[in-house]
Amino acid sequence: MLERFLRAAVALCLSLFALACSSEKGPPASVQVFAAASLRDACGDVAELWRERRPEVELVFNFGSSATLAQQIEATRAADLFLSADTAQMELVRKSGAIALEGPARWLSNQLVVVVPASSSEVEWSAPSELLHARFPRLALANPASVPAGKYAKAWLEAQGSWSALESRVVPGVDVRAALAAVENAACEVGIVYSTDAAISQRVRVVYRVPLEQGPRIEYAIAATSGKAPAPLAREVLEHFLSAPARVCFARRGFLVGEGH
């Protein structure tokens, strides 16, 4: 009795498996967008706009550090669109031959800020040299070896001459949002993230905004890559991200649209 039931259950499992395997063979009504972690919330807004216009095509987002995303694209060609926080990662993707259609240069920019946990009693700084103080034993950055946000931060600190002193205090995060979370949870006393990240969080406070002339040139890049979706569809999505309404979304979140300095 139980034996028959079990046999039926096994058969059911196997057929579900087979069914699931076959279910994705239909025409892809979805476009995979690999986007830097800092673009998370803005992309949500842009996706909303897209849904109003073209609800039958789903935008599937994969957020992460641009470095990780570039590697994934290299390894799998799963992305139809790549939104990178710097040009170096886009260059990697270009070298692997995955780019189908390049976006404009200096598409988006951002600003670095120094943040502390909201519970901290810090007041706004006049100079970035405050960072060197002993009351900040841990500095949260996105991994400065590979992630754009971390590399930008490191470039700025190097220009300030304080990198060598601060290097040993760095707690690297897997992407800029991880660095932000580290400061939110007070795991680190201070961190350097984008101003757009600080804007979405209630649990950190900005103590210093890196002036655009002082900081490194932050340049986001965007391109359609050869993935599973048909090229015209990917191109359409790219154009959507470059459209005026989309730019408004990015601007509202604090991004500097179409500028570098």
């Binding site: 998370r40 994969n62 979370a181």
Partner: peptide, 22 residues
């Protein structure tokens, strides 16, 4: 499998992701 919400995000990877975005 990465951590793509709706496609490859499981409970386990979802927790990790939720932590990352606070």
């Amino acid at each position: 499998a990465g951590n793509i919400p709706g496609r490859t995000q499981t409970l386990a990877t979802g927790i990790f992701d939720a932590l990352q975005v606070g």
